[in-house]
Design a protein around this nucleic acid. Structure first.
Length: 586
DNA sequence: GCCGTTTTCGGCCCGACTGTTTTCAGTCG
């Protein structure tokens, strides 16, 4: 029996193919095609088997005839002969070696050819034995840089969650902002686009005097290593293994710089192509007129802008919000004037998922209501855990009904300043049963059903559990549907299209859990759910007052999923919301 | 290998910094 390859596994194969082809000196356009396909497939929301079945593989951007054929091979046989052949020509360990900062295809090949190095430990040993410094183009400094890079890789191992990165970025921004000569400052890059995880921080500063700012930057206390320091650009590594890049530019060129350093890379490539069609080359500073051959016309004036809006306007487009800049349909939508009016945090009126001291929260019902009121919420639902979550002190039916009295009392006490509703976050048990009987659920204002255990069950089993919950008429929302935790727990292996189909049929809402460790649903799924007309709900799952401030992460995720206010039930007023839950069979 | 408001063929984004070099290749974002 063949084990089906996941989208991510197939994507990784294409990324590896790209690295191997690059190392072999293949045409850059060829290996870049494989890399782009790999990157796109990592994010593709549908199972590739489904796309193969309905013949839409080649509709995926970056996937043409050749790559579609290879995806089919992977799905049908579990391997791609072309990839198997490449692996006999180039050891796969070289792909890891190319991931070291400062080592690219040329160096990796050099180490392999000259010293037979094919794994990270091989490289470590050779560097420690001072064997790298005598190779052509190498020296003592390069050798040390590789040892540093190996240490970084071991310490950090990849991207960090946005919930960790954003506070660090905010702190750096606040510190640099206080310096003389800083006219403007922003954290750009994948942080500004709101990605779930951040590879490194890109800080952009507008100033006429970069040097003192660079100096203060590289001397920040948490800096353990200076990776580079130039006139306009510096890079450092922080104690937690995070790389931070600083760019300083004059304010008159802020627009192009901000656009450029926000990315994504693919989005920017597209922007430059659009500029070229208008007869300009675009870099991080300005549009420069080019001649027929594509050479910059030296004496022609360059076009600079202070705002991003003007950059987009110059290529004939409305400004594309940072969260959409992934070259994933946003240019087509912009050209057709069909960009979504993305939801903002000000659209949110309610938080429908929160815990109190009745289960594993740290505040009372009353205290949570006051904290929510303080943050401008118009209504909330108290949704403590149900009995199966023993560790979280989950509620038995008796305690749940006991709690309801308190919730009703608090609602009265708040006298309309904020409405406090009573619900539950009910477990979908590992055996597939729901944790509370229908006659209890029927007495609640709002019911969330969530998977907390058995997340590693086989696809059919875990999917069926969610379907059971979705088809129960008392359940209104599926909480954190895939159960993933960033960065350490993979999502459950759901047949997500079946989940969506069932949700669509039952009219249930799906959650974007705003906690930055969850951010579940992920943005591509949000976009797909919205396409299908499934209501989305953004909630903080708060266990304490300050958890409510994590809402912005959920909003960002919704925006990345192209969500408008109308797609999100938390934007409804109290009466509309109550009418919806009552119509659902209460 | 992908792709098309100039194209189904002939293009395919751009600059900063480093380390090793005497003018630049490699790497990165």
């Amino acid at each position: 029996m063949l084990m089906a390859l996941t989208n991510r596994q197939i994507a990784q194969i294409f990324l590896n193919i790209a690295d191997i082809l690059e190392l072999q000196g293949e045409s850059k356009f060829r290996f870049l095609s494989y890399r782009r396909a790999g990157e796109v497939l990592q994010e593709y929301p549908r199972p590739l088997a489904d796309a193969a079945a309905d013949n839409t593989l080649e509709d995926i951007p970056g996937v043409g005839e050749a790559i579609a054929a290879k995806i089919r091979q992977a799905l049908e046989t579990g391997e791609i002969p072309f990839y198997e052949k490449l692996k006999t020509q180039v050891p796969l360990g070289l792909v890891d070696i190319m991931n070291i900062n400062g080592v690219g295809p040329k160096k990796a090949k050099l180490f392999w050819d000259q010293l037979g190095i094919i794994t990270l430990p091989d490289l470590q040993k050779a560097a420690e034995a001072s064997k790298l410094r005598d190779l052509a183009g190498m020296g003592v400094k390069s050798e040390q840089k590789i040892l540093d890079g190996l240490a970084t890789l071991a310490r950090q191992g990849g991207r960090i969650p946005i919930g960790t990165a954003r506070p660090i970025a905010d702190a750096i921004v606040r510190r640099l902002q206080a310096l003389e000569g800083v006219e403007d400052i922003v954290a750009a890059g994948s942080l500004r686009r709101g990605r779930n995880t951040i590879g490194d921080l890109d800080i952009l500063v507008a100033s006429e005097s970069p040097l003192p700012i660079m100096d203060a930057f590289v001397k920040m206390p948490e800096v353990v290593r200076i990776l580079g320091q130039g006139d306009t650009k510096s890079s450092v590594e922080l104690d937690i293994g995070l790389q931070v890049d600083l760019r300083v530019i004059p304010h008159a060129r802020w627009g192009a710089a901000l656009q450029y350093f926000t990315g994504s890379k693919d989005h920017n490539i597209k922007m430059r192509e659009l500029a070229l069609k208008k007869g300009y080359t675009l870099n991080e500073y300005a549009f420069s007129p080019v001649d027929q051959a594509g050479n910059i016309i030296e004496d022609a004036p360059k076009v600079t802008f202070a705002s991003e809006e003007e950059i987009y306007q110059f290529v004939g487009l409305p400004c594309i919000p940072p969260e959409l800049r992934e070259n994933d349909g946003e240019f087509e939508a912009a050209r057709a004037h069909r960009l979504p009016t993305l939801i903002t945090i000000d659209d949110i009126k309610a938080d429908l998922h929160m815990h109190t001291t009745w289960s594993d929260g740290s505040l009372s019902v009353r205290q949570m209501a006051e904290a929510a009121l303080q943050r401008g919420r118009k209504f909330i639902v108290i949704t403590d855990h149900s009995q199966a979550s023993v560790i979280a002190n989950g509620l038995t039916p008796e305690r749940l009904l006991e709690q309801q009295k308190e919730v009703r009392r608090v609602n009265d006490e708040m006298s309309g300043k904020i409405y406090v509703l009573h619900g539950v976050e009910m477990d979908i048990k590992a055996d597939g049963d729901l944790d509370l009987p229908d006659e209890i659920l029927a007495q609640l204002d709002f019911v969330i059903a969530s998977l907390h255990f058995g997340l590693t069950q086989p696809r059919e089993q875990v999917t069926q559990r969610l379907l059971t919950a979705i088809q129960n008429p008392h359940v209104d929302l599926i909480g954190h549907p895939t159960g993933r935790l960033i960065p350490d727990r993979d999502p459950a292996d759901l047949d997500i299209e079946r989940v969506f189909a069932a949700a669509k049929a039952s009219g249930i809402a799906l959650e974007i859990n705003a906690n930055p460790r969850r951010l579940d649903l992920d943005a591509p799924y949000v976009r797909r759910a919205i396409e299908l007309g499934i209501p989305i709900s953004i909630n903080t799952d708060s266990h304490a007052a300050d958890n409510m401030d994590l809402l912005s992460y959920g909003i960002t995720q919704a925006r990345r999923g192209w969500a408008e206010a109308k797609n999100v039930i938390n934007t409804w007023d109290y009466q509309t919301f109550m009418a919806w839950v009552q119509k659902r069979g209460k």
